[in-house]
Design a protein around this nucleic acid. Structure first.
Length: 711
DNA sequence: GAGCACTGC
């Protein structure tokens, strides 16, 4: 039995005055509430009438819009944004800020002749928001309202509101450094502080200084013809002051959300085994509480699989009268077919139990959840910079942050009053950091540094909300130098510019450029496309491990994972010649390959071929069955990731001090290979090299930069 | 002997 404190507490840790407190409702912060002001431009009624011919569905949509919490503050919001160059808007979940504000700004004429961009950290968000807003505007997406994400652009000359991924806008800087097409840029989900959001926010500050300078508008300097830029930063409640002070004390506005009350319980004592506590808590809910689905937050796949089978075991032993349990695991690497189960309605007399990673915190909203069990744990990727180019990523379980805990609790109150059981004490909650450290402080900066170099900027000089770590910058500089993207004066080389032009990680871009010299671009594009796909090529869940290994043996290649990938892609291409989409899917299913990964890889490859053509790279050049050019190309990009076998069977980095092991998922695991190169190094239970190939030692020695360093 | 989540002309 897990003991929870009998008195529930509020999500932000303050004692509950009322037993059922609305999520995020109380706060002592001084706020500028947004209310319908007197400076109304037009009455709400008039506004709705002006919309296109009103069908029944349209009417319902417009009625719904009027009911959104943000609707009553419309005119005041427009007024504030008109008066201020930068506005920080804090909007709680369900306020409607992301769909409504762009429309308000357009309707008020505030955008002038320019476009309104709304940035999102995730692709799905950008596309689905554009669809939603187009529907509200009673038009097709791609006309007045459009979107732009990688591989998928739906916008036109007529587009005035464009939903884009933040990465897309950063890319756009390369061709249009002052983002001249836009008159308003709305940065949404700014609190997530992704690397791209931070780079964008730093650039926006500089761009606005250029575009809004009064002296320039009088006709002096190059900015004379520039139209001013409005910036709106939108975020969840935390960190408002930080955004505001970054933009010279920008005005902060608050919009209320619409969220059902969530009652929160903390455990009385801290729990040694969070998986076991989650198991007990689930059955306490299942036997004591009324119907409603349960969402359990766990750090990763391993815990999800473990807890899932324990729950199944105990559920089978319950008395017949107890409702059945429908288990739904949910993590990114799960085959999509098994993810859809979550959205289908819970069968009568059953209780759905969703076991999810962080993916359910922001990316996927699950209907019907009434109870949340929060283990208080997550996994975090963190780059450890080590002297010259020998850093590695860690992926370790750690405690979550306050903002994450609040987000998780909020997932219980989407459709009605809910309950959140935190498997940690109230003190533990109070001691959590407010929000996660921004990515710019904990991720590899190599790709961003290269992009900035192309803009004539530098990580050291650009003004960021949080400064990147010195060691991390040095490590990125070293990496780019080794790849030949920067010269010894830290200046961008021709090679570097070409690398930035390719939509690939710098090291993979270098592999493609090497393949150009060695005449094996065709093979390299096949490999690189899979490596830069988001999803994994091979599925691996505990229950089907042996069958999967068996089905895949025909792809295994003795020189390692890169050639194994090439074999898979070649087979898939063969199948694709004759099979329909369903046939390809079926083939993937039988061989335990991820259809999504291969589909994405094919899209990336197509894009890379187009880019190659523009760069005058012959992508049809092939080396046939000669493996040497392919391995040489890989070595050129992965030279930092080379390791030699030691007498004791371990591997030692060539350019760093670490002892590494070959990841168990690699085809070269347990093999004794004199020299290897690898895609990445991840520290979990050991320092593991993932994506490994065997290469002749001489290939590593012949890379120019190593000769340099010896000389 | 093992894989949090995202993104890109």
């Amino acid at each position: 039995m897990v003991k929870f404190k009998s008195r529930p507490s509020t999500p932000n840790g303050k004692p509950a005055k009322r037993p059922r407190m609305a999520y995020m409702e109380d706060s002592d912060e001084e706020r500028t509430p947004v209310k319908a002001g007197k400076k109304n431009l037009e009455s709400p009624k008039k506004r709705m009438k002006s919309a296109a011919p009103v069908s029944g569905k349209q009417h319902a949509i417009q009625e719904q819009r009027k009911l959104l919490p943000i609707a009553q503050g419309r005119d005041a919001l427009i007024h504030e944004i008109r008066e201020n160059d930068v506005t920080v808007l804090i909007g709680e979940t369900g306020s409607g800020k992301t769909t409504q504000i762009p429309q308000y700004l357009l309707e008020s004429g505030l955008a002038g002749k320019g476009m309104i961009a709304v940035t999102q950290p995730r692709r799905v968000a950008a596309t689905s928001l554009a669809n939603r807003v187009a529907e509200e505007k009673n038009t097709e997406v791609g006309k007045l309202v459009g979107y732009s994400v990688r591989f998928d652009e739906t916008s036109s000359e007529a587009t005035r509101i464009k939903y884009v991924t933040d990465g897309m806008l950063v890319r756009e800087l390369l061709s249009d450094p002052i983002l001249s097409r836009y008159s308003v840029i709305i940065v949404d989900e700014a609190h997530e502080r992704t690397l791209r959001t931070d780079i964008l926010m730093a650039n926006l500050k500089a761009i606005q200084q250029k575009r809004n300078k009064p002296t320039d508008r009088k006709g002096k300097g190059p900015a004379a013809a520039l139209s001013p830029l409005k910036i709106v930063i939108m975020s969840a409640t935390l960190d408002a002051e930080k955004f505001s002070s970054f933009y010279n004390k920008a005005k902060i506005l608050y919009v209320k959300g619409r969220q059902h009350p969530v009652t929160i319980y903390h455990t009385a004592t801290s729990q040694a085994d969070y998986v076991d506590s989650a198991l007990r808590t689930f059955f306490q809910i299942h036997t004591d509480r009324p119907p409603g689905d349960v969402l359990i937050f766990l750090p990763g796949q391993e815990d999800i699989e473990g807890l899932s089978s324990s729950i199944q075991l105990y559920a089978n032993r319950l008395p017949q009268a107890t409702p059945g349990v429908l288990l739904c695991p949910l993590y990114a690497a799960l085959p999509p077919g098994q993810q859809t189960k979550i959205f289908s309605p819970t069968p009568k007399g059953m209780r759905k139990c969703i076991l999810a990673t962080n993916i359910a915190e922001t990316s996927i909203t699950i209907p019907g959840v009434k109870y949340v069990i929060d283990t208080g744990k997550c996994k975090e990727k963190r780059y450890i910079a080590r002297s010259v180019g020998s850093g590695f990523d860690t992926l370790l379980t750690r405690d979550i942050t306050k903002s994450s805990a609040m987000q998780r609790a909020g997932r219980a109150g989407r459709e009605g009053p809910g309950f959140c059981f935190r498997l940690y004490t109230e003190d533990a909650f109070k001691n959590m950091p407010l929000s996660a450290e921004p990515e710019i402080r904990r991720c590899t900066l190599t790709a961003s540094l290269l992009q900035l170099k192309c803009l004539g900027q530098d990580l050291e000089e650009l003004e960021f909300m949080d400064k990147p770590d010195e060691e991390n910058i040095l490590s990125a500089l070293a990496a780019l130098y080794i790849l030949g993207a920067l010269d010894d004066k830290k200046a961008l080389t021709k090679n570097g510019r070409d690398m930035a032009f390719l939509p690939l990680e710098p090291y993979l871009a270098r592999v493609v450029l090497a393949a150009r010299e060695l005449g094996c671009v065709r093979e390299i594009l096949d490999i690189v496309s899979v490596l830069s796909s988001n999803s994994k090529l091979f599925f691996d869940s505990a229950d089907q491990r042996d069958a999967a290994l068996e089905a895949r043996t025909k792809f295994r290649h003795s020189s390692g994972d890169h050639f194994t990938i090439l074999n898979v892609v070649r087979s898939f291409d063969e199948i694709a010649k004759t099979e329909t989409n369903a046939g390809k899917k079926d083939w993937c299913h039988k061989t335990y390959l991820n259809f999504r990964c291969l589909t994405e890889a094919v899209a990336i490859r197509t894009q890379l071929k187009e880019v190659c053509e523009r760069m005058k790279i012959d992508w049809t050049a092939s080396c046939g069955d000669n493996e040497q050019p392919v391995l040489r190309s890989l070595v050129r990009g992965l030279v930092q990731n080379a390791a030699f076998l030691q007498p004791d069977g371990s591997y030692k980095q060539v350019m760093g001090p670490s002892i590494v092991k070959i990841h168990p998922g690699s085809v070269l695991c347990d093999k004794k290979i004199p020299a290897i190169i690898y895609d990445e190094l991840v520290y979990t239970t050991n320092i593991y090299a993932r994506g490994v190939s065997a290469v002749p030692r001489s290939f590593i020695a012949e890379v120019p930069v190593l000769n340099h360093r010896k000389a």
